[in-house]
Simulated scan of single mutants.
Amino acid sequence: MKLTSDFAGGHIRAAVHDGTGALIIDNGARKNALTLAMWHAIPDAIQWLVADAKARAIVLTGGGQSDFSAGADISEFPDVRHDAASAGVYEATNSRAFSAIRDARVPMIAAVRGICYGGGFGLAAACDLRIADETAAFAVPAARLGLAYPADAVRDFATALGSQWARKALFTGAAMSPKELLQNGFLLEVTAAEALDAAAFTLAETIANNAPLSVQASKLALRAFEQGDQTLLSEAQITGASTFDSADYREGRAAFAERRAPAFTGR
C-alpha cells in the first residue's frame, strides 16, 4: 500500500511504498527553489515518513524531470533575509532542515538531476548517499551573493566533499560536474538521465529490505565518528547491542539456515 502526504501547499511531497520513502521538492516553476515555508516543511515531512509511514530508507529528489533544486528562493530575501537579524531566523530554519536529513533514523539518498545549487546542494550534502545523472550541475554561490551558509551546512560540505573540494566550492562559487564529484567521492554513482530514478530507488529498496535496527545502528555510529560526538557513539553502541536480542536477529539466522530471504520487522 502506498501512503502519501503533502506539505507547504504541495511544494514538499512525501510518499512511502513497502518501506521505501520519497521526499520530493516540487516547485518546478522556480527550478525547485525552496521557499521559507518549504524549509519549514522538510523536518515535518521526514517525521511523517519515518514515524507515521514507517519508511526504512528515503530518496530525496526534485519534482519534474529537470532539476533537483536551485537552492533558497532568492525572490523572498528582501522580506525574509534582509539583515543580520532576519537572516539568523532564516538560517535557523535552514539548519533544522539540514539536521532533519542528517539526523534521520533511516538512510537518506539524494537523487540529483539538473541544477543542484546552494541550499539544494546543502540538502544533498546532508544525505547519507548521493547519486546523480549526467545532467547534474553543482555549485555553492554564496561568495557571489555576499552571504554565508550556516556553519552546520558548511560542515556537511566538508564531510561530503572533503576539505579541499569544500574550500573550492565555497571560495569560488564555481560549478562542479558529476564526473568531478564522482571522482572525489561525493557521488556514489553517475547514471544516464533515464536511469537515475531506478538506480536511487533500487538502492533504497535494498536498504529497506535489510534489518532496520542494524541499519540504524550503523548510521548512528557513522554520524558519531564524523561529528566526534560521544553521546551519539553511546547511542550507537546501545542500539547495536540491542540487535542481538531482537526478533530480526533471530529471523536473520533462521533465514540464513533455511536459505530464504529474511522478512525483517524492525523489532
Rank of each mutant, 00 (worst) to 15 (best):
D6A: 12
G10E: 09
I12K: 08
L23E: 01
I25K: 10
I25Q: 09
A29G: 07
R30P: 00
N32V: 05
A33P: 10
T35R: 11
T35G: 10
A37Q: 15
M38F: 07
A41G: 09
I42T: 07
D44K: 12
A45H: 06
D52E: 15
D52V: 13
K54Y: 08
I58G: 02
G62Q: 12
Q65L: 15
S66K: 13
S69R: 05
S69M: 02
G71L: 06
D73E: 15
F77C: 00
R81P: 03
D83V: 03
D83P: 08
A87E: 12
G88S: 08
V89D: 10
E91D: 13
A92G: 09
A92Q: 12
T93R: 14
S95V: 11
A100L: 08
R102I: 06
A104M: 02
R105S: 12
M108K: 03
A110C: 03
A110N: 05
A111H: 09
R113K: 15
G114S: 04
G114Q: 04
G118Y: 04
F121G: 03
L123H: 11
L123F: 12
A126L: 01
R130K: 12
A139Q: 12
A139I: 06
A142M: 09
A143F: 12
A148N: 15
Y149R: 03
A151Y: 04
D152A: 12
V154E: 14
V154D: 09
G162L: 01
G162I: 01
S163I: 02
Q164L: 10
A166T: 04
A169K: 01
A169G: 01
G173K: 06
A174V: 11
M176W: 01
K179S: 04
E180V: 11
L182N: 00
F186L: 00
L188G: 03
V190S: 01
A193Q: 11
A195I: 02
L196H: 06
D197I: 04
F201E: 05
T202R: 14
L203P: 02
A208I: 01
L213P: 08
S214V: 15
V215F: 02
V215L: 07
V215E: 07
V215I: 15
A224C: 05
E226Y: 05
E226F: 03
E226K: 09
Q230F: 08
L232G: 05
I238Q: 11
I238F: 07
I238Y: 03
G240F: 08
A241P: 06
S242Q: 10
T243I: 11
D245C: 05
S246D: 03
R253A: 15
R259T: 13
R260K: 14
T265Y: 11
